[in-house]
């Protein structure tokens, strides 16, 4: 994978996520974690190689197939990407609105999830009034609300205190127990050691197993 004519960011990467697995992706800043995640959630197109998502070759997917695949993937990004003019409730409910669920169908789920991530009292708040940690929790809630088959998170606990981080990790574990495949990019080794999970490490654009060099 390379950006335009720049150097290869990722090369000879061979990663396979088993259905229902929980995987941490780690590596130093700039190692290519975010790039690999973007390839996985179809925001970037690979320059060579093969990406298979849910048994479909990403390079030959039609636009409609890509959109349908994206609906199976929940994404938490470092910059949160909450919509400024929507309150927390609406931001979290967004994937369900996109799936054309009615308000009465999703209200209870959204309320419960917001309470779980500690934002039950901020449903009506606008994103710009939230702290970084609260925005992150809202972004996580939005990523998991539609119970995706695959959850991809880029540094999901980077802006929250250890108590909330542990709570979020429990949410991810719970989702994983219910069948969601989880892929989390982080360099927080404490978090990685909290639960039993596969660990992948990116170094110099290549992928290795385990935490060895950290």
């Amino acid at each position: 994978m390379r950006y335009n004519r720049g150097p290869e960011i990722l090369s000879d990467v061979n990663m396979r996520l088993k259905r229902g697995s929980f995987t941490f992706l780690t590596g130093a800043s700039g190692a290519g974690k975010s790039t690999l995640l973007k390839l996985c959630y179809l925001t970037l197109k690979h320059s060579r190689g093969l990406i298979n998502l849910f048994e479909n070759d990403a390079s030959i997917m039609t636009h409609a197939e890509q959109q349908s695949t994206k609906r199976k993937i929940g994404v938490v990004l470092q910059d949160f990407r909450l919509i400024d003019h929507l309150n927390v409730f609406e931001n979290v409910a967004l994937p369900l609105r996109v799936m054309e669920e009615t308000r009465s169908e999703y209200t209870q789920d959204v309320v419960e999830l917001l309470q779980w991530v500690g934002l039950g009292h901020k449903m009506d708040a606008m994103p710009q009034t939230l702290s970084g940690g609260e925005q992150q929790r809202a972004a996580i809630a939005r990523a998991v609300i539609a119970k995706p088959d695959l959850l991809i998170a880029d540094e999901p606990t980077g802006n929250v205190d250890p108590v909330i981080a542990r709570r979020l990790l429990r949410l991810f574990s719970e989702m994983n127990r219910m069948g969601t495949t989880i892929l989390i990019a982080t360099h927080d080794t404490t978090l990685i050691r909290e639960i039993q999970a596969d660990i992948l490490r990116i170094e110099n654009g290549q992928l290795f197993e385990g935490l060895t060099s950290l």
Binding site: A64, S68, I73, V75, I83, L94, P95, V98
Partner: peptide, 15 residues
């Protein structure tokens, strides 16, 4: 930005 988020959460062009 709104469109980008909508696409990210799987909104189709029709939506």
């Amino acid at each position: 930005n709104v469109i980008r988020v909508l696409i990210q959460v799987g909104a189709s062009d029709n939506f």
